[in-house]
Write a protein that binds this DNA or RNA. Structure first.
Lengths: 210, 210
DNA sequence: TTAAAGCTGTGAAAAAAGCCACTAAAACAG
DNA sequence: CTGTTTTAGTGGCTTTTTTCACAGCTTTAA
């Protein structure tokens, strides 16, 4: 018997869907109309069976003997990931990493725009050329409300992370991409993704094969 | 029957050990001598039972009724992760993200030093102040050999990623921390960790609860 | 010394993720 | 048409990861 409620997409699958989407985008640039699970899987660094299984969560629209329609598939994934509409994002902490992220234009092609940055010291901005405004922390609630911001990038030092996270949540932020080297405690209703570059390196070093 | 060879530490556990290590470091700064699994787990954002289970892979040195010795535990983890000695790292690609990472000093406290950067265009460096030398790609093999570099950070555009990855591997690199928005194919003996900031954001946005 | 409370260590169960073998559909070649 | 090849979809097996329940040390208090 089929479930009445639509099945939840597994966490890992959601993550991989983003990867597939990125690969499909590249294929589109190359004017490819269709792609097989094998080719796409290789591009994404996963096994073909896993790719196919992942895609079944979105329904069936592969063509047996041929593959998937690149355009259709990428639209399908986009719809499911809910990245149709542009999402405004704010960044807190204009230190080393924060500035780096501000200068990094890799978010925009994916539908995210950093509309404002915040820092304790709003004079801190070195790169005057940046077109992203830098505000003092006190303007956080106002801007979040005004632009209906739901996600924030947290790039402050460890010591400030929890406090700033609290402020963000109080102001209505629902998702935090955390670069601070501690894991802030957040209430149930807030989504949190942690990225720690040092840990990534450390982890890599463990898996070096001699 | 027990395995003769010492059991492998699970992938996920290795990753979390790094997180614990970071938390322990903070505790040390606060002059705490011991910590319970519950407290440390909360700091790391995991469940206490998971923390304890993770630690059993390193042996037993918790004290029942009391907790873990902060100093001893952090040394234990350090030894197991093999981060006793400093590791030289190189960075390839001095674009937006590459420069950002060069300016980011978060690696050094964790025992990694970016000793050199490489770019197709070695004039590219904007920040003249940087004390990290920027070399042309042609010097890759020489420097990797000279400094016995085993890990590289890859921060080049998608189009160049595979080619540069190949060059790194040919020159003897054993681990790649990849920031490029594609997953390069690497041989069996090379470890690869992928970080894609855009995907992290996209992933977060999916899990926003309304 | 004894009792109570606080914690760790761990086997076993449960859940999640990954993988494979096989089925079925479509395309293609002749 | 017909047979062959290519490729998606899937049930369920295997492995990995997480969680649970509880046994067993340690400390503390009286």
């Amino acid at each position: 018997m089929k479930k009445a409620t639509k099945t939840e997409i597994p966490r890992k699958t959601v993550y991989r869907l983003s990867v597939y989407l990125r690969c499909l985008h590249k294929l589109k640039l190359n004017k490819l109309q269709t792609v097989s699970s094998e080719a796409l899987a290789r591009a994404a660094g996963v096994k073909p069976t896993q790719l196919r299984k992942d895609l079944t969560y979105l329904g069936q629209f592969g063509i047996r003997g041929l593959g998937y329609d690149v355009e259709q598939l990428s639209q399908m994934i986009t719809v499911h990931l809910g990245t149709n509409r542009l999402q405004p994002v704010i960044l807190v902490g204009a230190g080393n990493l924060g500035n780096a992220l501000l200068q990094y234009h890799g978010f925009e092609p994916e539908g995210f725009e950093i509309i404002a940055a915040f820092d304790q010291d709003p004079q801190r901005q070195r790169d005057k050329i940046l077109r992203i405004p830098l505000h003092p922390m006190s303007k956080l609630p106002q801007i979040i409300q005004e632009f209906r911001v739901r996600m924030a990038i947290l790039a402050v030092p460890a010591a400030a992370a929890q406090e700033v996270a609290n402020a963000l949540i109080d102001a209505g932020i629902l998702g935090i991409l955390n670069f601070a080297p501690i894991v802030p405690a957040v209430p149930e209703h807030v989504a949190l993704n942690n990225v720690n570059l040092a840990i990534e390196l450390e982890n890599l070093s463990y898996f070096l094969k001699e």
